[in-house]
Design a protein around this nucleic acid. Structure first.
Lengths: 343, 343
DNA sequence: TTGTACGCGTTATCAC
DNA sequence: GTGATAACGCGTACAA
């Protein structure tokens, strides 16, 4: 029994394809008895309209795409994405959409873009070369950029990373720390942190501004920058690098909570007691941050709100009524127990 | 500048549609110069093949569907899904697939199934009535069932919930606890836990078997069952219910870690010290379980492996070479610090 | 209610 | 060996 199509139903019910279509999509156009008859036949034969064929003419899939910068497994390890997806999910729910997670295809986002059957994309972690933007334009589907500066005609959602980062570093400095490890998120680009742009650049700038307020140069030997992928494992690597460094830090400032968590766990493995022997501040305010012991002092960014807003803008763009918006959401330092006064 | 189609390219390049199609999909069929010419034109005009039109003929979307029992936002609050998705993600990565998250549409999974443009579904949290199975058959796409008993001809992945649950309850009993709160996952069905089937039923059975080993009836007044949705919030409700109960438990056994976490946090809000004043055991072994203080004693189920396996089976089914498999993965009690000896 | 054109590619089959 | 012609997939939309 191969696939039942609308033709099978039309034939069996003795009506036209159009009638069958109406019976499912706009029953008001047909006599009640006809509708019932068609439904009965469809039921009996086990007919279900092919969603692809439908999309072909409606030009709609009712799916939003989330274009990831990395494979799904890595992304899902980072609670940031779970939260972002939650935000997007609220809108999917309201708007009756599904969510397609689109990872790079054979290592390339450019390859992934042309294949996804979605009505539009939410793009996170845009790289500096921005080939994606070109490719997305080519697809001629709407898209929304998250956590990167966007072209004027492309909606975007960002947070005030710089202020948040500045507040985090300032807090550490105010509590007397001067030997500080800074864990940066690896950009994947050559040039390292000198070439940071977008979110990473803003956070780095914020850190440096705070250091500057305390008359500390980023090149001061007591301030040690390391880079690591934003993951638990990355945090482990970062701690190991910092701990092997000439000046062991009294405080670690991390660009993400997941990094901070990795640092914390590894520090513990090394026999350290926190926060007594090492202070720690993160960025993101994941749900875990509140649960950890010590509870993590961190910078809250409204990740869920970010997802929600991005999805809203995307749905609006898909529906056509889209005054392009560039939104910047606030960040906030959340002081918990992971940074102590010293000196 | 409306949408560029294959016809535009063919016309502009002075070739047939076929040639353009070949240039993209099977360049070997064409002379090198022709291919280059076509690519140049496509580049200049900004052509990108429409994935829907392509799917129309290939009958492939290269998307796996994950059919959720609840809306995306709720699901993503539960780390179980993040982990499951990680597992699926590994296979998506290897097989070059995307992952479509399909929540109920207007409250109904049955409505969601016909609309998703996917090559197959992974179905979690199947309800007892199983209308989904009928609808999925109608769609005539392959599907794999996770965490429910499946028809013989449908692949499935389950874990040995009963043994795990039995081990958890036995552990609590062995350490001397006799006044016990059991937090069950709400099935959403009338009849409550008496009507549990599948995963929930197995876990409940496991608990009861362990109680039986200690000659305790499930109806013993010292054993108090409550039901709550499997979420942080559900854990809160559960604790409040248990704490208002006549016999305040010395130990709480929860059907999921996320419930246990909610219980723990709420207990803390009530001023309790854990594990001294309340022992706690979960189920799942989420990453958080290890991080919490006290670290959570729980039953590990290989969630990620479950996702991976389900995706593997689905991909195999899609590709047609599918000897139907019913897999049951093992569970294991992980003893950490959240249950103490009493009496 | 129906007939029919149409959407946008893919893939035989066929001609040069 | 290269490339074109035309049928096909499965619904929807518009005129009749």
């Amino acid at each position: 029994m191969s696939k039942i199509t609308i033709n099978d139903i039309a034939k069996e019910a003795g009506v036209s394809k159009t009638a069958v279509s109406f019976a499912f999509n706009d029953p008001g156009q047909l006599a009640t008895t006809t509708v019932e008859h068609i439904h009965a036949v469809a039921e009996r034969l086990g007919y279900s309209p092919d969603p692809i064929a439908r999309s072909m003419t409606t030009r709609r899939t009712n799916a939003l795409g989330l274009l990831l910068p990395q494979d799904i497994a890595s992304a899902m390890q980072n609670p940031f994405y779970a939260q972002l997806i939650r935000g997007i999910g609220h809108i999917c729910n309201d708007a009756g959409k599904t969510l397609m997670i689109v990872p790079p295809l054979r290592g390339s986002r450019l390859k992934a873009i042309p294949h996804a059957t979605v009505d539009g994309f939410i793009v996170v972690g845009l790289e500096v070369d921005r080939g994606e933007v070109v490719m997305l334009r080519r697809r001629s589907v709407p898209f929304v950029i998250v956590d990167s500066v966007a072209p004027d005609d492309v909606p975007s959602v960002n947070v005030d990373d710089r202020s948040g980062a500045r507040a985090a570093m300032r807090h550490v400095l105010e509590l007397g720390h001067r030997t500080i490890g800074v864990v940066c998120i690896e950009s994947g680009k050559p040039g390292g942190r000198k070439e940071y742009t977008g979110t990473l650049g803003e956070r780095l700038l914020g850190y440096c501004e705070a250091l500057d307020e305390f008359a500390i140069s980023p090149d001061d030997p007591r301030v040690c920058f390391v880079e690591a992928p934003s993951s638990w494992q990355g945090g482990r690597e970062a701690f190991e690098a910092l701990w092997g460094h000439e000046h062991r830090p009294t405080a670690v400032v991390a660009m993400s909570d997941i990094l901070a968590i990795g640092v914390l766990e590894t520090a513990r493995d090394f026999g350290l007691t926190l926060p007594d022997e090492l202070s720690l501040v993160g960025f993101d305010d994941l749900p875990d941050a509140r649960l950890m012991r010590p509870a993590l002092t961190t910078v809250r960014q409204p990740v869920e709100e970010k997802g929600r807003l991005a999805a809203e803008l995307l749905v609006a763009a898909i529906d056509g009524d889209a005054p392009v918006q560039h939104r910047v959401l606030p960040t906030e330092l959340i002081v918990r127990g992971s940074v102590i006064q010293i000196g």
